[in-house]
Design a protein around this nucleic acid. Structure first.
Lengths: 347, 347
DNA sequence: AGCGGGTGGGACTTTTTTGTTCCCAAAGGG
DNA sequence: CCCTTTGGGAACAAAAAAGTCCCACCCGCT
């Protein structure tokens, strides 16, 4: 399908997101009938895990459209119904189909939940805002009062913070940075984003001001400072962790890493970074940024870990991080998702 | 926009007609804000003739999308909002925009209601089915128990009858043919269609079996036959009249008109036919088929007259008939509608 | 300075929609 | 002849949407 169609669907999804669900639902019903015809209402409902009444409503609608035929043995697709179904199959792939992509990635990587938004952040910067919006929506659904939310820095997380600002959504949570400041620009530092999110949510926040790349000895000293330790404990207890994912190229330019340092990390096989860990394409941790904050052991305690990142270029990094952290929810975009699937299936 | 987009929208409208309304609504709101910003919630509601709460719901949705901005003076579109609005303007023209076409034709022809469905029956025969479905839906909304429904023949009306069959819609009405049999093929004769509709609705029907092209004297005799007269009285009392519209070319081929007869009618300036009346491009009746049934005077008594016809080729005929009968509801398709507007504006 | 008209936001009730869960008669299969 | 399935229908519960207020605020006008 053409570019215009892509654009059309993008706009449509922005302006009326509910249509995705409607069309996906009707397509699922049509397909289920196609594969099981003739099939009865109750049977269909239990197969699709939908209420009997929902089915009934949709059925009578589809029947009016002359897409299916009912007799005493059950429901059958009409010729027109079959035509529409096969057309929808292609159509669904464009947007509703993202949900089949989602399932695919869930299966491949054994993740609990994957959310894909259409487009590619690398190509269209607006998609990055959409990604932020998706993240914000996710938080809106999952956050409970009095919970602790840990966030990292990065441009994507900054989008999440901004999107939360546009929502009329308040929740009394405590927001903390997942790790100490990582020497980035202020507006995309974890501290800044944590404070911003807390303000938008009407919640509280605690910051962690720690210089980057300290000596191990200095870090140990800092970790035992009462003021710092208190915050580190809060971070370790976080109920939700939302983090971005970085490629190695990004790291070298954004952070104060020397060229030889980058080369060293690359030579170890690192392709991605998340929460201060460098990870190779197999999902093995090959290096750690010398900073303090959330640890890998803490992650396992946390109820929910959410990774947000998009763009085809980040696919390898995302894949690596998801291998390393299979309990995470992943929010990404179509560009990255398709590339991830390609990478997996290529092997 | 391309062909693919057209097709996409067509399918979408079939499978999920509600999206039209949703998108149209949101577009209307965005546009109203654009032209009146800054504007308040209540003001907006009264202008768009919508409930205050509806507006509030949509507003908070659009706000989350970052399409508009709220402050103490009212609501303003953001840059992104303006971009989306201008995109939607083009998009709406493709399907929701039909409703602006509808309004335009209402205004030009002073009709109470116009319904336009996308596509062109001449190009895509499926559109004719859609037209029938639209007619059926209209009847479903308007019919009341015990009413009398008069219908004519024709392929379009046949589609209406079929579409009614696919709906699970029952209504105890009496269906009658608007005029005596007009010598067409059985399956598109008024009598056949009346019976079919009545059966689908679970109602009653009366038929009118009268040969075509009788001498005036014979007609007068027939009209006073008790059995015939009874039915004619029912027809005259009809609450709803649904009729098709024919072009002269159709008439000559479909009906048993001789070639010189057709020439005679054309020489009088006739461009369309409805309910047995030949009408010229100004809307003047130039000839009448010698048959019995509904009369022009009866039309004025009837509460609702619905004309159903589509296809670019029929535009001139539709226009003529609408000039002649400005109290009618018109159900047509995009192809005809656009041509009608062109014809009007050309003059 | 006070007033009237506008703003958004919040809270409440009513209405409508949606979902759950039955029962029913009919028909095919064993 | 029973058992299972079918669609159709209806009663009822839950949830979402809509209608309607009121409130605090801010402006410009008198």
């Amino acid at each position: 399908m053409g570019d215009k169609v892509q654009e059309l669907i993008r706009i449509q999804q922005i302006i009326a997101p509910e249509i995705t669900k409607i069309i996906q639902l009707r397509y699922d019903i049509l397909r289920a009938i196609l594969y099981n015809q003739p099939i009865g209402r109750r049977n269909l409902a239990s197969q699709l895990k939908l209420g009997e009444r929902v089915i009934r409503g949709e059925i009578s609608f589809l029947q009016e459209l002359n897409l299916l035929h009912i007799n005493q043995w059950g429901m059958t697709l009409t010729e027109e119904g079959e035509r529409i179904t096969s057309y929808l199959e292609e159509y669904i792939r464009q947007f509703g189909g993202l949900s089949s992509l989602e399932k695919k990635i869930c299966r491949y990587l054994n993740l609990p939940e994957v959310i894909i938004i259409p487009g590619d952040s690398d190509v269209n910067p607006m998609v990055k805002s959409d990604l932020g919006r998706a993240g914000a929506r996710y938080l809106k659904n999952k956050l409970q009062p009095k919970q602790i939310l840990a966030v990292t820095g990065g441009t994507t997380l900054a989008e999440v913070a901004e999107a939360l600002g546009n929502m009329r959504f308040k929740m009394d949570v405590l927001v903390v940075p997942a790790r100490g400041g990582l020497g980035e620009k202020v507006e995309i530092q974890a501290n800044t984003i944590a404070a911003q999110i807390a303000e938008h949510l009407g919640g509280d926040y605690k910051l962690l001001h720690v210089p980057d790349n300290l000596s191990p000895a200095a870090l140990r000293t800092l970790q035992n400072e009462p003021g710092i330790k208190e915050i580190l404990d809060l971070i370790a207890e976080a109920d939700l962790v939302v983090h971005g994912i970085g490629t190695i190229e990004e790291m070298s330019s954004r952070r104060g890493l020397g060229e030889e340092e980058v080369k060293r990390i690359i030579s170890k096989g690192a392709v991605g970074e998340a929460l201060g860990y460098y990870i190779d394409s197999k999902g093995k941790i090959v290096d750690v940024i010398s900073s303090i904050g959330l640890h890998l052991e803490d992650l396992k305690k946390s109820k929910l870990v959410v990774a947000i990142a998009g763009g085809k270029k980040k696919a390898a990094a995302i894949l690596a991080c998801m291998y390393a952290s299979p309990q995470s929810t992943l929010i990404t975009d179509q560009g990255a998702a398709e590339e991830i699937v390609r990478l997996i299936e290529e092997k």
